[in-house]
């Protein structure tokens, strides 16, 4: 098994599965810590609230295994809530501890537009990333969220997106850590490129 898709009860895995099948990736959807250890790469998907997500990971005793595997250098792709959980802390319905793999926090979007942001928005590339290989600057992806990540360090940010004045981090690439605030599995053929690129990342 190459990629372990972490099932921690947060959201619908149907479309993640479909996207991985479309790019011909070998994967398994799992909630077992042993499977995470065996896998070559991890995907942490997710929709919903920060605290619920962390609760789901804790309940399955996955917090430590994820931290350990990623610290050892195993590539991880966080999607939407999955990306937000990689931060040190989250501020959705109170303050909660995250996985702490990226310095900084998850916080509400500060915008003149309606929340949640639901729809297609552009990314502005900030540095070259394997995750965005073949993806044009200013490409559109599908977002559904009210919260964003605020990383402490600039080099973490691979792309940003502007929604009603808030220029937030929409793509992360930092060593073996990758993430998108948008849903690549809901972003048509451009989104599938993200899965393809993650699949192709050499260990």
């Amino acid at each position: 098994m190459k990629i372990a898709v972490i099932d921690y009860g947060a959201g619908n895995l149907f479309s993640v599965r479909r996207a991985l099948e479309a790019v011909g990736a070998k994967f398994e959807i799992t909630e077992s810590a042993a499977k995470l250890t065996q896998a070559e790469k991890l995907i942490l998907p997710g929709v919903g609230a920060f605290a619920d997500g962390m609760r789901g990971l804790k309940k399955r005793r996955l917090v430590k295994p994820i931290r350990n595997e990623v610290k050892k250098g195993k590539p991880i792709l966080g999607i939407c809530l999955g990306l937000q959980l990689l931060m040190e802390e989250g501020f959705e319905f109170g303050k909660h501890e995250g996985l702490g793999l990226i310095e900084g926090k998850t916080d509400k979007i500060i915008t003149s537009e309606k929340l949640p942001q639901i729809g297609w928005n552009q990314i502005k590339k900030q540095h070259d990333s394997l995750l965005l290989k073949g993806v044009a600057d200013k490409e559109f992806f599908y977002f559904v969220h009210s919260f964003v990540i605020r990383p402490k360090k600039k080099p973490v940010v691979a792309a940003t997106t502007n929604y009603g004045g808030d220029e937030f981090c929409s793509v992360v690439n930092f060593k073996n850590i990758y993430g998108t605030q948008f849903h690549p599995e809901k972003s048509g053929t451009e989104g599938l490129k993200i899965y393809q690129n993650f699949k192709n990342i050499k260990l």
Partner: peptide
């Protein structure tokens, strides 16, 4: 930027 969605 915010875009308007076209939904069949």
């Amino acid at each position: 930027m915010k875009t308007v969605r076209i939904i069949p």
